[in-house]
Design a protein around this nucleic acid. Structure first.
Length: 188
DNA sequence: GATAGGATTCACT
DNA sequence: GTGAATCCTATCA
């Protein structure tokens, strides 16, 4: 679960045809472990959550409320059932395409990818990425791939830890991590 | 085989 | 601030 704060500041790169990319910086994460009553892996491995038991660095995508996708990055050792939910991104590249995916029009970029379901829509993340390896070298990949790139927390930026939201079990566990940027203000 | 519920978002009051 | 939409999975009979 110490991986959750380390993922803050990293970039998710989604490749599209004709060399188009959408890049988002991770600014909010949430840690889920096997001993967490709110985690999908709490009751052991099932066909649905199997990717969460895979090697660290792979993706776990699931459908929430029948209409939204959520993206997790597996962080535990193989067979461990540990992952980090990516809750919010700041779009840094390909914003026009992200807006189109979200039908966002001319509205402020603030709300473009500031929720688990929203960011998946913005990057066109679906079940086809479930279980895929996010740590492969980006040079070797073609359209449709999703890649996680290293990113550091920059000077002036601060991290904070808060209780989780949007769940009904163990809601007070401080496992939600936010990245605050000095100029552009807070998210959510 | 049937049912309850969810790591959410959006529109409407 | 409140509630509806919507469907897949896990759990129970």
């Amino acid at each position: 679960m110490d991986a959750a704060p380390r993922l803050l500041g990293c970039r998710l790169v989604r490749l599209f045809p004709r060399g188009v990319r959408v890049v988002g910086r991770i600014v909010e994460t949430e840690a889920y472990t096997e001993d967490d009553p709110a985690s999908h892996t709490f009751r052991g491995q099932t066909p649905r959550n199997a990717p969460m038991f895979g090697p660290a660095g792979s993706a776990y995508v699931y459908v929430s409320y029948g209409m939204h996708h959520c993206l997790n990055i597996v962080t535990g050792r193989e067979g461990t059932g540990e992952a980090v939910l990516v809750r919010a991104l700041v779009i840094e590249e390909g914003e026009a395409l992200a807006r189109r995916h979200r039908s966002w029009g001319e509205k402020p970029a603030r709300g473009l990818a500031d929720g688990p379901g929203k960011l998946c829509q913005a990057l066109a993340i679906g079940l086809d990425l479930n279980g895929s390896d996010l740590l492969r070298p980006i040079e070797s990949l073609g359209a449709g791939a999703l890649v996680l790139q290293d990113g550091l927390v920059e000077g002036g930026e601060t991290l904070s830890v808060t209780p989780r939201v949007g769940i009904s079990k163990a809601t007070d566990w401080p496992r939600r991590f936010l990245l605050h940027r000095p100029r552009t203000g807070k998210e959510r």
